[in-house]
């Protein structure tokens, strides 16, 4: 066939396109599970890092297995809440934050991950997303079970300046957040501020900003404020439930104590009554045997001192 004839060109192009498309489809289908796994593993690693786990990932021989094992061990639950704080259907892991950010606030799904640490106490991990100087910044904030004290944070960025804004992903910057609180003593929401000029050690609601990275630091502050305040109703509800539970337990404990005290008192009264009855019986018996001349000294030894029961 003539190579330059139209018929040949059509046939050739069709054959080429079909061959290429087939190859690509097969390759994509075969490789998709691997790619999906990689993305998942990376997300799990970030979540684990916020609760100080999976830190030795570099040394692990099989990184994927290591991360999966740590995740299965420590992250015991993941649920979704809406902006009113009510639990929803769905897995926290599946939620795509970028998509949710585009929706109006009332419709957003807010994921929460639960980590059960070695000491059995739960930690709650909240994903956060924001804007730095040159591009997006994101991360995870892990809270203690009081939903206020921060256990750990992990941040990452796309294009912040190394040495300046990019410092937000260094352990030194992130370590500052440990122990800081997002609610103050009056249970008002304060988030954590990122303050220029430092001197924030000992202040529970502020950390030092990055020196030279003003805009990025402001971005971090805004990210925390915006993202955490979305969960406000959820946190409040949980805190309220915790407070109610705490009070209930306290009440139960107090009731139990009171009951025990009452029981103790009753036992004492019963014992006292029993002794009194015995003394009376013996006195009656003594009265009877008085005529027979029994030694009265023995009696007095056996007579206990009667304690008057206190007025209840």
């Amino acid at each position: 066939m003539n190579k330059d004839s139209n018929k040949y060109i059509y046939l050739y192009s069709t054959a080429l396109v079909v061959a290429v498309a087939a190859t690509l489809s097969i390759a994509a289908t075969l490789l998709k599970p691997f790619q999906q796994k990689n993305i998942e593993v990376e997300k799990k690693q970030s979540i684990l890092l916020s609760v100080h786990k999976a830190a030795d990932v570099r040394k692990a021989k099989n990184k994927r297995q290591y991360v999966e094992a740590e995740y299965a061990k420590y992250i015991t639950d993941g649920f979704v809440v809406n902006s009113l704080g009510e639990k929803q259907e769905g897995s926290a892991f599946e939620v795509n934050l970028e998509e949710e950010a585009a929706k109006p606030a009332a419709d957003r799904k807010l994921p929460v991950f639960v980590c059960t640490d070695n000491d059995g106490k739960p930690k709650y991990i909240i994903p956060v997303r924001g804007v730095g100087l040159w591009g997006p910044i994101w991360g995870y904030v892990a809270l203690h079970s009081d939903y206020s004290t921060i256990y750990g944070v992990v941040f990452d960025h796309q294009g912040e300046t190394p040495g300046l804004g990019a410092e937000l992903s260094t352990p030194d910057f992130q370590r500052q957040f440990e122990g800081k609180q997002i609610f103050d003593a009056a249970s008002a929401f304060t988030s954590v501020k990122v303050v220029k000029g430092g001197h924030t050690q000992g202040k529970p609601h502020a950390v030092d900003a990055i020196s030279g990275g003003t805009i990025t630091s402001q971005g971090v502050e805004k990210m925390l404020m915006d993202n955490l305040s979305a969960y406000l109703l959820f946190f409040k509800e949980q805190q309220r439930a915790q407070e109610a539970e705490r009070r209930r337990q306290e009440r139960e404990k107090k009731e139990k104590e009171e009951e025990e005290e009452r029981a103790l008192l009753q036992a004492k009264q019963a014992e006292a009554a029993r002794i009194a009855r015995r003394a009376a019986a013996e006195a009656a018996a003594a009265l009877q045997s008085d005529t027979t001349g029994a030694a009265p000294a023995v009696q007095s030894e056996n007579t206990p001192v009667l304690e008057q029961p206190e007025n209840l």
């Binding site: 290429v20 690509l24 390759a27 994509a28 790619q35 990689n38 993305i39 990376e42």
Partner: peptide, 17 residues
């Protein structure tokens, strides 16, 4: 060339993420 490039990209994403 596009075919090869896409293949390389997919393989990297699967095995050297």
């Amino acid at each position: 060339v596009s075919l090869l490039v896409i293949l390389v990209d997919q393989v990297l994403r699967a095995f050297a993420y």
